[in-house]
Design a protein around this nucleic acid. Structure first.
Lengths: 285, 285
DNA sequence: CGCATTCTGTAATTTAATTACAAGATCTTC
DNA sequence: GAAGATCTTGTAATTAAATTACAGAATGCG
């Protein structure tokens, strides 16, 4: 439990001097963690042992241990918060807000994602005869990114952002094929159809979508992130970043499953890009 | 800055004994904060002053101060210090690591990005007669995403991931046109050519790329993120997420600059998607 | 009012951390 | 490849910090 809260809660059970200590600490927590017991005693106008007793009362081993707990409480105080961009925000403000809300979204996604499902998805992907990534609109770029990643693995992989192509591809799918449908809301009708068609043709369908959405119902495996989206901007932002990170995770799981020998393959792909580049190594585009 | 990251980043500048200390701390951060300098010295099999020197090298006042910083780092929820995915990592481990390293990358990007340049880029984009997004390989999906965003603004926007199309498009550009070239390394020859051609034809070229890269030299405006990329995986991951967030920022800046009336336009675009969806509102795909 | 209990401070003690210094290792340069 | 220089590292001494023991106040209760 947070030490600061603990102090506030127990404030009544303190003695007069202990209360003086509590007040000083609550007023200057940042200063406290960088003070010695002597300095703090002076600030609170009490003796050093009183400070020490105060710390013990809060179930810490002593003053240094108390400072440690206090430091942690302070650090926990301001995690990533989802801050909304407002009309009058200047460049510093909206830049900071977007970075922070994206990080907040990833933080949420991290706790909500189901590791088990990830593991099963990786299983399915490593054994796939063919992998297809389908997405529409904003999710199309996520699908493209996924293709770019899995393509490096030298696995048959396709990606379509065209409904007709998706449909044809889905109809031609067969057992052992994996179809990954990407949609934040999971309510895009066309994509639900695609998922249904693929399933009817015995493909395994992985949905990167919202839990309990119409699309989710059509899938064999659902990877849901349920990231809070700032709808003020009328654009998908954080949700799509979370989807990309999920793709990274699946791709990483894939390479790990394939073992170290496989990694050499990746290096070859990376090295192949060298010719198109100006000196120096490195792979990203 | 996070002490744990600092240790990981500076691991090369450490001496042999200091490195032993670093290893022990990274392996047992929780134990470290509850140990005395003597205990830690013993664990690392070095002398106490060595531990002290190690702490000083990390810009802390000494061992107790170092423990305070470490406690705060741990409180922020970073159990996986070594964020690099390793061969033997299970699904929980690599999932957590990828989320964390992506968040860390965004945190770095946030501090490194130049707000002034962002502001100028937004300026240029709002006044553009036409906007083009060009990227190759992994950056192509970022370009697609950017197109999807800016397309909603009802501005002439194109996006090509084909060198020939990019080239033709660049040659046809004119004053008032804005070309955005996306490349993490900034060393993709073809894209450098495109940037040069666009500039020769009086277009404004914005580079989302590494600072001081060949591509950066060809650009009117350079938006560099300089995110550390984990090259172990031979795939661009964190860098590309940072690029996307940058696109979000530019798009947000764009809408804010255009004022509230413009926002209604966005709502219209969003609403137009409703027909393709199953009940409920919301826009993302 | 006086005894008992709790609280608080002084001083002593212990423990921990830091500094000073010297020996050892490593790296250069001739 | 040896001599000098520089950088590392450990031992021992010193200093600083925290804790304990104890005693004197304060407060509460009969």
């Amino acid at each position: 439990m947070n030490v600061l809260e603990k102090i506030v809660n127990n404030v009544n059970s303190f003695s007069k001097s202990e209360r003086k200590v509590a007040d000083v600490i609550l007023a200057n927590p940042q200063i406290t963690i960088h003070s010695s017991i002597a300095a703090l005693a002076k600030m609170a106008d009490v003796s050093e042992p009183t400070v020490n007793r105060f710390c013990r009362r809060l179930d810490t081993k002593g003053f240094p241990d108390f400072k440690l707990h206090l430091a942690q409480s302070l650090a926990n105080g301001t995690p990533y918060v989802n801050r909304h961009v407002e009309e009058e925000d200047g460049p510093e403000a909206y830049t900071a807000k977007i970075f922070e809300s994206t990080m907040a979204a990833l933080d949420t996604a991290r706790t909500r994602v189901d590791i088990n499902t990830i593991n099963r998805a990786v299983d399915v992907l490593t054994q796939a005869k063919k992998i297809s990534f389908f997405g529409l609109g904003a999710s199309a770029s996520v699908a493209h990114d996924a293709q770019n990643k899995f393509f490096r693995f030298n696995v048959p992989v396709v990606c379509f952002d065209d409904i007709v192509m998706q449909r044809m591809s889905a109809i031609n799918s067969a057992e052992g094929d994996v179809v990954v449908c990407i949609s934040h809301t999971g309510r895009t009708k066309n994509l639900c159809d695609i998922a249904a068609i693929a399933r009817e043709n015995d493909a395994t369908v992985i949905g990167i979508t919202s839990y309990e959405s119409p699309l989710a119902k059509e899938c064999t495996l659902v990877l849901s992130l349920d990231v809070p989206e700032d709808t003020d901007m009328y654009m998908p932002m954080a949700s799509r970043v979370a989807q990309l990170v999920l793709i990274d995770i699946l791709a990483t799981g894939f390479t790990l499953r394939r073992g170290s020998k496989f990694r050499e393959n990746l290096k070859k792909v990376k090295d192949s890009l060298r010719g198109s580049r100006f000196e120096k190594k490195d792979l990203a585009n």
